[in-house]
Write a protein that binds this DNA or RNA. Sequence first.
DNA 1: ATGAGCATGTAACTGGTTACATGATTTA
DNA 2: TAAATCATGTAACCAGTTACATGCTCAT
Lengths: 193, 193
Amino acid sequence: MKQETSPSLLGILSLGPMSGYDIKKTVAESIGYFWNESYGQIYPLLKRYAAQGLVTLRVERNSGKPDRRVYALTAAGRAELARWLRLPPKAPAQRNELLLKLFFGGRMARADAEQLVQAHRKEREGQLRQFAEVEKWLHRKHGKHPDLPYWLITLDSGKRTARCVLGWCEATLKTLRQIPVPKSGKRDKSKAG
Amino acid sequence: MKQETSPSLLGILSLGPMSGYDIKKTVAESIGYFWNESYGQIYPLLKRYAAQGLVTLRVERNSGKPDRRVYALTAAGRAELARWLRLPPKAPAQRNELLLKLFFGGRMARADAEQLVQAHRKEREGQLRQFAEVEKWLHRKHGKHPDLPYWLITLDSGKRTARCVLGWCEATLKTLRQIPVPKSGKRDKSKAG
DNA sequence: ATGAGCATGTAACTGGTTACATGATTTA
DNA sequence: TAAATCATGTAACCAGTTACATGCTCAT
């Protein structure tokens, strides 16, 4: 274990005490579009945090289901969160499969390249609609929450990115239609291979 | 090994025969801004591809340095590449640490949040300048390469994204300056913890 | 009855990076 | 003389996902 703090957990707990199960759901609902956590990380980490004194554990008896194990941030946990927040974020791993395929667009049929872009456009359109709903919901449900401006900042990032990508899709589709087909029959056998 | 094809390698080899070392460099120079490969993946994969008949190996004697092991795509390799290109790309993992931190912006000093954004803006400005240079270089060096339009498509994505992010940085900095400071002294102790 | 939701957790796996070993040649 | 470039490769490590085990309750 090299990792000093796993980012989101302490942050999520700063919204209020909750269980591992709650954390998973909360992450998915609030920051799901740019972050996620799996149980395989959450549960072991919570245990570790408890051992380090960053969180406290309260067990709520539960009939039938397993007991709810509710974790709450301690002062040390808040301090650790604060420390982590000020650290320069490390750049996200660069792995965009769509771009990778398009880079080799000359190796596939024009229609296939267009198809990739069109599928992506549809996805993003859906996402944009979702963002609009989330925004309405945020204002309705959390209109005066002190953290709302921060939430809107991240949402704004999503909206802008989606719009930007849609613009690129449009432009790309136009470009693709203008690319001349290689003269020599249907197959491009440059010479490599 | 579940993974059927590791994406970029066959694509890169479709540009011409080369060694593992060359592939690493080529990836960094051409698609580096949205993809990367490490030796730890490249070398074992090339071996596997050779065993599968997707590539052929030619060894070039080399004095002092290790021999150059030059790989070239076979017909089977080109077919496999074509097959992979048509597969729907899987969405990149969602892990944006900057947004994560900003989502919890209420837990840090205003100045620290601004700092995060400003640092990011600087990075992106640099990237945008780089893209401009790459574009010039592409036209100069590969002005009539049949794949140029595809390369420009991916570059365009980079440029648009960078510009989009810069716009968001500006907007975010403005927003941050307008967020009212929580009344109760300097510490926000909502109730959690 | 069937499946979703509640709720905990772990083991196995996978994809990927980093560090290391080796060593000549060229450039600053 | 120090560092970068050429060139191969592997072992160890790390982060993170998936699949599984368990079992009650509530809605369809």
